[in-house]
Simulated assay, not measured.
Amino acid sequence: MLTLYKPGSGWLHRMPAGPKLLLVLSVVLLVSLLPSHWFSAGLAAAVGILGYAVAGLGPGLHGIKELGRQVFAIRWVIVVTVVSQLIFMGPEPAVANAARVTAAIALAALLALTTRVTALLDAIEAGLRPLERLGLDPQRIALLLTVTISTIPVLGRRASEVRDAQWARGARNNPRTFVVPFLIVALKHADELGDALTARGVR
């Protein structure tokens, strides 16, 4: 399964997957609940920068550089969010909501960067095990959450790679020429994901 995980020895890498997941989800929830005001945009940006700066992803400004790569990978998501919000809601909500969405995705990527998929899956499954009494399947729920957390930043990176390849060939910014190659890449990722799930015994 394709993931963003990068081996490392920082404190966030060493932190157990369960507590790390709760920490990241709590921060994402707080960012998501911010009101749509100017200060929320600055606060969401500050949370994202601080998260990558203290995550221990590498020496010096390595964490900030990684944040830049993650934001650059989802730049089209940001553009679409800002433009659509500008049309229907105005500048302040557009900037605030785009900042919150960007921070949430970047923090999800931070979790994926520092946690192996298997460790994350095991942690979610263990946390959901009490739900078996209610007739729910913790393994399937854990798998769904893990795939969702892992897939969003991966597809963002793939979208960036498709756009960069088009620029290298001299293609203009045309949504029609972008959508088809991106769909092919996304479907290929879905096939790889399906093969990985089948290998794990999921039907």
Rank of each mutant, 00 (worst) to 15 (best):
L110V: 09
K20V: 02
P138M: 08
T148Q: 11
A106W: 06
V117N: 06
L43N: 04
S32Q: 07
L143N: 11
I149N: 02
G10V: 05
P35R: 09
I124M: 08
L21M: 08
L4C: 06
L21S: 11
P91F: 13
E66H: 00
A96S: 09
A17R: 12
L144P: 00
V27Y: 07
N173S: 11
L107M: 10
L113G: 02
E66T: 15
V162I: 13
E192L: 13
N174Q: 10
Q166L: 11
V54D: 00
W38I: 00
A98M: 10
V185N: 08
E132V: 04
G201I: 08
L113Y: 15
V101L: 15
A106M: 05
V77I: 15
A41K: 01
M89W: 02
Q70L: 12
L22A: 14
G58F: 06
A119Q: 12
T102H: 07
S36K: 09
F72N: 01
V179P: 01
Q139P: 00
A142C: 05
G18V: 08
T102A: 09
W167Y: 06
R133L: 07
I105L: 12
T115Q: 00
I64Y: 10
L34K: 01
L34W: 09
Q70S: 12
G56N: 10
P138I: 00
L120N: 05
I87R: 13
V147Y: 08
L86H: 06
A104W: 06
A168Q: 05
A99K: 06
G60Y: 09
R69G: 05
P153F: 04
A171I: 07
S9M: 12
L120E: 02
A106E: 05
V95W: 03
S160G: 14
N173Y: 15
L21T: 09
A17M: 07
T118H: 04
M89S: 14
A99M: 03
A190G: 04
A165T: 06
V185W: 04
G42E: 03
K20H: 08
S26R: 03
L120T: 09
R176Q: 15
V101M: 14
A55F: 10
E92T: 04
A190M: 13
T115W: 11
G194M: 08
A45K: 01
L57S: 06
E132H: 04
L183G: 07
F72S: 09
M89G: 01
N174W: 02
L86S: 04
Q70H: 14
H13N: 13
D191P: 04
Q139C: 05
V101G: 10
R200P: 03
S9R: 14
F88E: 08
P93T: 02
A17S: 12
I78D: 05
R203M: 10
L22F: 11
V54H: 04
L111D: 00
L187H: 11
A108I: 14
L144Q: 11
R203H: 14
E92D: 05
T118S: 14
P16F: 15
D164P: 05
T81E: 11
